[in-house]
Simulated scan of single mutants.
Amino acid sequence: MAQYFFDLRSGEIFSSDQDGIELPDAGEAHAMALSALIDAARDAVMEGTVNQHFSVEVRDGPDPVLEVAAVFHSKIFRTQ
């Protein structure tokens, strides 16, 4: 088991994971990062955002392991 840290970047906002979580391998870390990205993007898309950049950067201590990133565009033209 290794300790993985999941840092979230949303546009200019960066949130560093100070606690991390123990996972068996990088494959599990990738699945967790993808899930976190989807959750973060879901909130922004529901609000209606244009070209919102998201990434989850995974590291095991100081070293990067992987990154999952996406750009979302959502526009609400009218509510009814």
Rank of each mutant, 00 (worst) to 15 (best):
M1W: 10
M1V: 09
A2T: 05
A2P: 01
A2R: 08
A2M: 11
Q3H: 12
Q3L: 15
Y4R: 00
Y4P: 00
F5C: 01
F5H: 04
F6E: 00
D7S: 04
D7M: 03
L8G: 01
L8Y: 05
L8W: 03
R9T: 12
G11N: 04
G11I: 00
I13C: 11
S15N: 11
S15L: 15
S15D: 13
S16R: 15
D17C: 04
Q18D: 10
Q18S: 12
D19Q: 14
D19F: 06
D19V: 10
G20L: 05
I21G: 03
I21W: 07
E22Y: 10
L23Y: 05
P24M: 07
A26I: 07
A26K: 09
G27S: 02
A29H: 02
H30S: 13
H30G: 07
A31P: 04
A31L: 15
A33I: 01
A33Q: 02
L34D: 13
L34Y: 14
L34V: 07
S35Y: 03
A36N: 11
A36G: 10
I38A: 13
I38C: 11
D39N: 13
D39G: 09
A40M: 03
A40S: 13
A40R: 04
A41E: 07
A41T: 05
R42W: 09
D43I: 15
A44R: 03
V45F: 10
M46V: 11
T49G: 12
T49F: 06
V50L: 11
Q52C: 09
S55C: 10
S55R: 07
S55N: 05
V56A: 02
V56K: 01
E57A: 10
E57L: 08
E57G: 04
V58C: 00
V58P: 00
R59T: 02
D60W: 06
D60C: 11
G61F: 03
D63P: 04
P64V: 00
P64D: 02
E67I: 15
V68E: 05
V71W: 09
V71Y: 07
H73P: 00
K75S: 10
K75W: 05
K75N: 10
I76D: 07
R78L: 09
R78V: 09
T79M: 14
T79P: 06
T79C: 11
T79G: 11
Q80C: 13
Q80A: 13
